[in-house]
């Protein structure tokens, strides 16, 4: 599904990623853990072509295509979805209109006809109730006045509606209490499928108690320092990142 080779990237000339190698087969969930400033979010932005984040070396192949040659919306159309750490508030635009515009943009890129208002409403209602979002939240302006948990749930709703093949979850657990975390994790787990891969970026092991990864990678100082199974997350929880920080230094 996703193959990253020797990826180097910088922000404003400062190198943040120093040669990442990572491969996620279809249907697998991989977690990236690491201390603050290790380059976790940079990786997610590089995969979504955010302005200001520059690839200086290496390659990223997604479903056989050169991902780096596509711009942000082309990547979304190809099936890459980034659940943001800080979802943006858009006053005056209802969640419904936003989701409908996004869905029809993605459908158009797949050669599918747009859904009309009634079809969209039906689809959105179903997906929203499945992750415990009220219909009222579809009518409200995008993320405006949403609690931290509601914002993250709204990200998962978008993911459920757009049906991407690669889901990148950037610190989706940040700012969530345990109940909200469970709801978000349930939403993510419901989307697991043999055709869909996930990259879960997190600082804490706690999210991985609810979203069981197939592999865990430790990112520190711009490189993956260690990879292993789900047990690696528990080891990190006990020992912290100190070893890796020392190793890199």
């Amino acid at each position: 599904m996703l193959t990253i080779k020797n990826l180097h990237a910088s922000i404003g000339g400062k190198e943040i990623l120093k040669g990442i190698d990572l491969s996620i087969p279809a249907g697998q969930v991989h977690a990236i853990m690491g201390p603050n400033g290790s380059g976790k979010s940079t990786l997610s932005y590089i995969l979504s072509d955010r302005a200001g984040y520059d690839v200086t070396e290496g390659s990223v192949t997604f479903k056989g295509r050169d991902l780096l040659s596509l711009n942000t919306e082309e990547r979304a159309a190809a099936g890459v979805f980034l659940a943001m750490q800080y979802p943006v508030e858009i006053p005056g635009v209802s969640n419904m209109v936003f989701l409908k515009t996004a869905l029809n943009a993605i459908r158009a890129s797949r050669g599918q006809s747009p859904l009309d208002a009634m079809q969209t409403l039906k689809l959105l209602r179903g997906k929203a109730s499945a992750i415990g979002l009220s219909e009222d939240m579809l009518k409200r302006a995008v993320n405006v006045g949403f609690s931290g948990g509601e914002k993250k749930r709204n990200e998962i709703l978008q993911m459920a509606v757009l049906e991407p093949s690669l889901c990148i979850l950037d610190e989706t657990d940040s700012g969530l209490d345990i109940d909200a975390l469970k709801i978000v994790a349930d939403g993510v787990n419901a989307l697991r499928s043999p055709e869909r891969s996930m990259l879960v970026i997190t600082h804490y092991q706690r999210l991985l108690d609810y979203i069981k990864p197939d592999a865990v990678h430790v990112l520190a100082y711009g490189k993956i320092r260690r990879s292993g199974g789900a047990e690696l997350a528990h080891e990190l929880e006990e020992k912290g990142y100190t070893d890796f920080v020392n190793e890199a230094a």
Binding site: T72, E73, R75, L82, M84, P87, F98, I106
Partner: peptide, 17 residues
């Protein structure tokens, strides 16, 4: 707002949309 533009484009909207 550049953040908002990125957010919308990451959901598949082109620049004009």
């Amino acid at each position: 707002d550049e953040d908002a533009m990125f957010y919308l484009r990451a959901r598949g909207l082109n620049e004009t949309q």
